[in-house]
Design a binder for these strands. Structure first.
Lengths: 144, 144
DNA sequence: TTCGGTACTTACCAAAAGGTGCATACTTGT
DNA sequence: ACAAGTATGCACCTTTTGGTAAGTACCGAA
């Protein structure tokens, strides 16, 4: 019903093509998205970008609702992907902190426009999602 | 710009928390990512951004390896989210095409840097992923 | 001594996401 | 008549992902 009409952006600017290349990925966009795919990864990047080196526990408390298992897992993947650096201070009560690598920083930069887009259009997105949540729940009852 | 920037530009980490949010989202980035979450959505957006209005069948063939069920489903969600417009020409052999709304176009623009990042770093990403695929399938190594 | 905090690990599960294949209703080409 | 193409819908199933709760090894405080 609600046709989201926006500021008369009549001539949509052209989008450059997504250059396909190396094995496994259809294009750069594909590669990027696989790297940040994970329920909490963007948030992790977000916090590290904002607050710099952060201890595990802090991160854990900052990102609410994440479980240890998944947080650790995603941190490990980010580390394996070279986006995050893990520093073990080898102290007696364990002390480890995580920070962004230069690669991680560059990715964070590339995320800026997405963040801005979301901020700008959050109202619309939010509304639509709320509606979807409604009929989604009624459409299917718990299996069995 | 009064807009909170996602990754702090560089030197200082003074950027405050995520933008105060509407129901459901922790920040703009979160909102954006939920909208493009779906195995083929980014590719759909990119394709439509480049080629303009496209018939269902064409899309289906362009995005290889996607199944009808999922493609339709993601198109419906994109449409519900106001990013894509579905046009049914009501012709006898069905003819429907999909195009980006202005909102969709703006999102596609925001994806450009991600695409660039991926293209630029595809070598690293690709290598790391290949390695992960190897030990992920077999048993896990003792903690190194 | 037991409690709580550190940074994890593991086994087991539930839910979500995606894939397969068949069905539809109608038309054009062979 | 029959296959093929059009844009979908639906039932069923597998894979992927994330969550829960417990355990580990170590230390200091109560």
């Amino acid at each position: 019903m609600s046709e989201p009409t926006f500021p008369p952006t009549q001539t949509p600017p052209p989008v450059q093509s997504c250059t396909p290349t190396l094995p496994g990925f259809t294009c750069g966009l594909d590669a990027t998205l696989r790297v940040i795919a994970g329920k909490w990864k963007p948030l992790i990047l977000y916090f590290l970008a904002q607050d710099g080196p952060t201890r595990y526990g802090e991160l854990r408390r900052a990102i609410r609702d994440v479980s240890d298992k998944v947080l650790i897992q995603q941190l490990k993947e980010l580390e394996a992907d070279g986006l995050v650096k893990r520093t073990d201070h080898k102290e007696v009560p364990p002390r480890v902190d995580y920070s962004l690598t230069p690669l991680g920083h560059s990715l964070a930069q590339a995320l800026v426009p997405l963040c801005a887009w979301g901020t700008e259009h959050m109202a619309e997105v939010s509304r639509v999602f709320a509606e979807r949540a409604t009929w989604t729940r009624r459409g299917r009852q718990p299996t069995v």
